[in-house]
Each structure stands twice: as structure tokens, then as C-alpha cells.
Design a protein around this nucleic acid. Structure first.
Lengths: 327, 327
DNA sequence: AGCGGACGTTGACTTTTGTCAATGCTCGTG
DNA sequence: CACGAGCATTGACAAAAGTCAACGTCCGCT
């Protein structure tokens, strides 16, 4: 990456200020510029990721509930947003927390798969810029012109931009009109290659979708409202990377799924670190399905959902009281 | 790790201030404490690693020289400290840069091997505290009561402390009086286990030592001054983790090496990311030997040394002029 | 119970940082 | 070549953050 000389001075100012601990006026003197410029450069340094300020997310891991969830469901790490007294609405805090955790989980050279949805976009939005090197962000599902929200490819690209990374979009729609066409397309070398590339990711970021009249797959037009009832009868329980799963987390055997171009579930599960982020308390059911399908290793949810998960798994959510006590 | 309630408020203040972007007085109001306390907590948050401020090290990777070195010697990443006009003495900047790079390279759950030396200790000293989880720091060589400087085990422990990590020290001296004793000790299960654990590290940090009257191994008493001449005749070129290597980077066949308890070279090379840091321009020779022995994948040196390495490898250090131009 | 020390907290003051309108500079265009 | 748009830079002022002595509180000890 060619270095614009203008950026050089920003790096120098940031290094002197943040690493050497000089004051702005000292930095100004050292670099022969005004202090106002130093202040300006430092702001730019923070905004562009030349300087990265990360805050510990321990706050959201500190109660017993999180540890119990990790233990009971065999997860790597669980973060819970409860009533820490930080903000009125826990759900609103989730993308911010997820962005912090996500940025921390991605390192130089990583290949990162992202699925899309409202939550994922909110995370992208809350992410700080970071000066990673050699990161690749790959889309985990086909594309879709979402009329009311952000498109999957925009989502991928936005995240890539924040990591100074290369963004790889799928050259295919998420869902096609016929099974045959989807099959043909999947066999196309370009598409094949993209699908195969998902399994070699180092980490993944996604959410799980619901299946209701106002859920994402419906609203963005991937799925017809009329198909919904029949799918539910077949046992549809949630949506992962644009594909419908049953209550056990298996790919539902249905016409819709056969017309979809998206990541293979085994490929997803082959990714070592998979961060699942769920904002809404209403997604409890789909989340349980996703757990059974072993789709993720790291989880961020509200403590309400955390407690319910344990309850419904026949576990006493002991420590829930501790959570409440935090406030 | 049990959470002292006092720390909780520090985390909360840091989260609100750094992640939500509130002002100190707003944080104070939200947490029902005085603004002065908020300022205090925030400082503590920074000092203890609850908040981590990392500055990009791009500044030290920007010239062609670094890229040429990576290419010619097959290294992963090279950072060069030249005359960026930041500080008078490039060598003094190296531990600071190395500390930044090192902290960035270690992630949760990593097992990190550290060798010791003046440089490694200087790095430990310059490191910020970070709130890593599940990190283990293992000593890569036996111990030694260094009269004039820090001991290997102190070095390991200090680094562990900064990562909130577990530190594993070697339960053996670096060098013994007889070959037999060293052999027996190496075969002891406790020691065997520690030696074996080195190969399973995720990353390593070390420097290379010289062999002169005033070099580290001599000064700390590991090696007798009287032995030096004979070792040089045998082809001794440098020191890696307390062991002597020849110009080709191979373990020198000598009495001293047979009496040493330290990491096996193949185990070191089995570690995927190995950061070599060299402060002194005088270590050019030992460094070349270390390169030939493929001891490291990442390198931090002065640009003077960088240029010389290329020259002596028969490469024109083009771009050196570019380096100078930076100032 | 009384005492003393250590440590956490705060208000008031100082220093440092953020901001913004005004100015200067560069470069493409008529 | 002159002009002006757009952007970088700066000085001066306002806002925010840092500091510290004084005070309060808790806890162990006599």
C-alpha cells in the first residue's frame, strides 16, 4: 500500500503522543507544526485506525451465568449484556459490544466470513477502523437487493473497509427461481471457488434469523410470505446464512433451501472461531436451533436470553441473581 | 478470576468513556461519583490494561528496505527503526516498537515462549498491560542468577504479569558443570515436560546474543571468559536461548552446549510466529547466523542493520535512500 | 473503645486538549 | 496567467481532563 506522505505525519504524531507519551505541544514542537494540527492529526489517527483504543469486555463476562452457558453448551466464550446500568436498553448495547469483540478476534492475515442481517450491519456500523494487514472478508451467502436495508455485499464491503481488508463478494443471488438453476450456478467454477473458500476462513461473524411475517428473509424478499406456513409445518425453526434450519439445527429439506446459494453448513462448522450475535430476545427459538446445529463457538446475547437458554436446557440459571445484583 | 467490586466501576467508567464516547462529567453523573474519580479510574484502566491503546507500527514498515528483507530472507514481517526524526537513538526506540508489535501478536489462549536477555527485558519493561485471557508464558531456557541484570525467570514472570497470564518457569539451571548431569536432568519428567512444551507454543519472543568479552552469556556467568577463544575457533557465531550457534545457525558441537538446558532448536522452529528483536548494530554477525538457522519469522532491527544484511547477502539495498529520505 | 495508617473520594485549581473562524497554500481550470 | 475552489494550517478561545491537598471512611491493632 503506497504511503501518502500526508499520512506519515499522522503516524508520527500518533506514535509520539500515544506511545512516547508526549504532550500535544511537545509533539508539535518535535514535528514543527502547530499544536492545533497535532490535535487534528490525532483525531484523524483515531478515526482511521492508526490508533486503536480497545476497552476490555470483561464487564460482560463477569457473572456466573456466562460461565454456566459456556459449560453447558460447550462454547468457547459467552458475553452477556444485562442491566449494568450503562444504558437503558440492553439490545442496543449488543452491536457495540460485538464490534469490540469482533475487532479483537480478527488478526492480521485472517480470512473472515460474514453473513448478513440487521445485526451484522449494526456491528459493522459500530466497528472502529483498524490497521490490519492481509485480512480478507468473504461473504458467506449469495446477494440480494434489499429494498429496506443494507445489502449483503455492502455489509461485507463495509466490514472490509474498516479492516483495511480485501472484500470478496459472491457473484450470485442468494435465492434463485428454480432448483436446477441454483444447481448449475453452484457448479460454476467461480461460484464453486467462492463456496469452497468459506471453509478455509479463520473466523466467522453471523446472527440467526427468525421466520415470521416481519422477519428479515421475508422483508428483503428472499422468501415469499405465502411459503412461510408450509415451511413451518415442515419444521422450520430459524435462518442461518440465508438457509432455513429445523429445531435440531439441520438444513431443512425444502424447496427453498435447494434454490439458495450460500455457505455449506459443514464449511461453516469447519471455521475455528465463529461469533454468533443475537440482539433480540425474540430470537430464543432460532438461537436454540443454532446451538443444536453447533453453528458457533462464541456468543453474544442479552442476559435475559442467556438465562432462558439455561432454563430451557433444564439447567437452573443460578447466578442470574448475581447478574441482577450488578446494577 | 474473581472480580473485585472495585474493579467493576473502573470497567464501567472505561466502557462509557471510551466505547460510548461520553465525557468524564457525563460518566461521573451516570455512575454517581465525582468527575475526579472518573479521571482516576480511567487512568487506572489505561495502566492496568482494561483499556488498551495501540498505535499502528506501519511507520516502521513503510520503506522498500523492509519489503526487500522480507522477500530476500523469506520472512513474514520486518520492521525497521531508522531516522524517523522521532528520537535521537534508533536503538532506544526498538524495545518500545517491539513491545507494541509483541502485544499485538499475542492473543487470548496463546502459549508464548520467551528467551531472555537485555533486549527481552527492555521489551517487557516497555509493554503495556493487556487484559488477555488464557495466555501462558513459558521460559525457553534454564535459569541463571544474573548478578548484574534481570534473571530469565523474572523476565518471563514480568511478561506474564502484563498479559494477566500464567508464567511457567524452568525448574533447572541454564548451564550445569557436567554433561552427564545435564543429560540426567533433561531426562527428568518435570524438565522433559517443560522442554516438550516449547514446541507447542503459538509464538516466541527472543533476541540473539554475541560472543565477546562483554556479551551477556559471559557477564551473567553462564560461560567462562577463558572458554571463549576456543569456542570461536570452533566456529561460534552467536547465542540463541543460551545455546551457541555457528555461522550457519546450527547448534555448535561443543562441551558448553552439551551442558546447557534449553529449548531444542527444532522445537523453536516448530513455533509458527517467532519474533526476533535486535537492538545493537554490533549484532549483525550473530543475526546473520540466526537467519541461516531459520530461527525467526518476524524481525525488528535498525535500518542500518537491515541495509547491511541485504548488502552482505549480495543484494543491493535499494530503497535505502528512500529510508534516509524519511527523516 | 480509641488510635493510627492506608486508602478511596472529592472540590477547586491548573494544565492540556478540542474547536473553529480566519488565513494561507496548492492545483486545476477558464 | 489569473482566478477560485478545496483543503491544510494556525491562533485564540472554550471545553475538558489532570492534579492535588484536604477530608472521610474503613480496618487492624493496642
Amino acid at each position: 500500500m503506497a504511503y501518502r506522505p500526508a499520512e506519515q505525519i499522522v503516524h508520527k504524531a500518533a506514535w509520539l503522543y500515544y506511545t512516547h507519551g508526549l504532550r500535544q505541544d511537545e509533539v508539535a514542537q518535535r514535528l514543527n507544526i502547530s499544536r492545533a494540527s497535532v490535535a487534528l492529526y490525532l483525531r484523524r489517527a483515531r478515526e482511521t485506525g492508526v490508533v486503536n483504543i480497545a476497552t476490555s469486555t470483561h464487564l460482560f463476562r463477569e457473572d456466573m451465568l456466562a460461565r454456566r452457558l459456556e459449560e453447558v453448551f460447550g462454547l468457547d466464550t459467552v458475553w452477556l449484556v444485562g442491566r449494568e446500568g450503562l444504558i437503558a436498553d440492553p439490545a442496543a448495547e449488543i452491536p457495540r459490544l460485538a464490534a469490540n469483540v469482533f475487532v479483537d478476534m480478527v488478526r492480521n492475515g485472517d480470512r473472515v466470513g460474514v453473513a448478513w442481517g440487521r445485526t451484522v450491519y449494526a456491528i459493522a456500523d459500530a466497528m472502529s477502523y483498524a490497521d490490519r494487514e492481509g485480512v480478507t472478508v468473504v461473504e458467506m451467502c449469495g446477494n440480494l437487493g434489499s429494498p429496506y436495508s443494507y445489502r449483503p455485499d455492502q455489509c461485507t464491503m463495509e466490514i472490509a473497509r474498516r479492516f483495511n481488508a480485501r472484500g470478496l463478494n459472491f457473484y450470485a443471488p442468494l435465492v434463485l427461481s428454480t432448483e436446477d438453476l441454483a444447481g448449475d450456478l453452484r457448479r460454476e467454477p467461480v461460484i464453486r471457488e467462492q463456496l469452497d473458500g468459506i471453509g478455509s476462513c479463520d473466523m466467522a461473524l453471523f446472527s440467526v434469523g427468525t421466520l415470521d411475517a416481519d422477519s428479515h428473509v421475508i422483508k428483503c424478499g428472499a422468501l415469499e410470505l405465502s411459503e412461510l406456513a408450509r415451511l413451518k409445518d415442515l419444521g422450520a425453526a430459524g435462518v442461518i446464512a440465508g438457509q432455513i434450519i429445523d429445531a435440531e439445527g439441520r438444513l431443512l429439506d425444502c424447496d427453498y433451501n435447494r434454490r439458495v446459494i450460500s455457505a455449506d453448513f459443514d464449511a461453516i462448522r469447519a471455521i475455528p472461531r465463529r461469533l454468533m450475535v443475537v440482539q433480540e430476545d425474540e430470537k430464543l427459538g432460532p438461537l436454540e436451533a443454532a446451538i443444536r446445529g453447533r453453528f458457533f463457538t462464541h456468543l453474544i446475547v442479552t442476559s435475559t436470553v442467556g438465562a432462558r437458554l439455561l432454563e430451557r436446557a433444564g439447567q437452573d440459571p443460578a447466578g442470574a441473581t448475581a447478574t441482577e445484583a450488578i446494577a
